[in-house]
Design a protein around this nucleic acid. Structure first.
Length: 206
DNA sequence: ACGAGGATGTCA
DNA sequence: GACATCCTCGTA
């Protein structure tokens, strides 16, 4: 049997959210609801830091109903609604009291392809299945009701399946859609798998 | 290929 | 009013 293991809590409580976002490329992201397993390999992430990052919802220690969960200890889900339609899934990282998170922007689908097609209203396997942060959550059946869900439980979790991604195949650049963050919009905190057709087509806009 | 416009709910 | 987005429909 191949290496197949949930990421331990210590993976999420690390102090460097940028490094965690980088190391998540090649890990696996799954959901299982009513016995239906869906998910795949992570190919695109973005880091957000509560301390020094104007793009982060919890910038300057902002505590609101929405950002509250970001201050939890690493290893829980931060899911929020964007544009009234799409749920975006983040992994809370760092220790309790520090509001860091990694946005999962795209995966290469490997499990539950039929179910994900149904949820996305597609008839064939194509990038529109999971190549974008709002698409990944739709395909995996994740919505804002899963905000705060522990990644140590059986509904939503991440795995290391032993995939080795060569360092030179992980590329970084500015994050998408954070022009409001001024100079911080230029930070190269978006990571993706070079050459993957499952990376989102979105480009940063300034 | 590409761009414009719309959908839709919550946040600050 | 803005939003860590995506789809559809127009013009080329």
């Amino acid at each position: 049997m191949a290496v197949q293991q949930k990421l331990p809590e210590s993976f999420y409580t690390g102090p460097d959210v940028v490094s965690i976002a980088h190391s998540l490329i090649g890990k696996y992201f799954f959901s299982c609801f009513d016995g239906v397993l869906t998910g795949g390999m992570i190919v695109e992430t973005e880091a957000y830091s509560g301390l020094n990052d104007a793009a982060c919802h919890a910038h300057l220690g902002r505590r609101t109903k929405r950002t509250q969960i970001m201050y939890a200890q690493g290893g829980v889900a931060y899911v929020y609604l964007i544009y009234g339609i799409y749920s975006l899934f983040n992994i809370v990282t760092n220790v309790e009291g520090t509001a860091d998170a990694v946005l999962i922007r795209a995966i290469e689908p490997t499990e539950g392809l039929e179910e994900m097609k149904l949820r996305r209203g597609l008839t064939k396997i194509e990038p529109r299945l999971t190549a974008g942060p709002g698409l990944v959550t739709q395909a995996l059946g994740i919505s804002t009701q899963h905000n705060g869900t522990s990644l140590s439980d059986s509904q939503i979790w991440l795995e290391d399946r032993g995939t080795q991604v060569p360092e030179e195949d992980i590329v970084s650049g500015p994050r998408v859609g954070v022009a409001y963050a001024g100079a911080d919009a230029l930070l190269p905190w978006r990571f993706s798998l070079k050459g993957s057709k499952w990376v989102s087509k979105a480009n940063p806009k300034y």
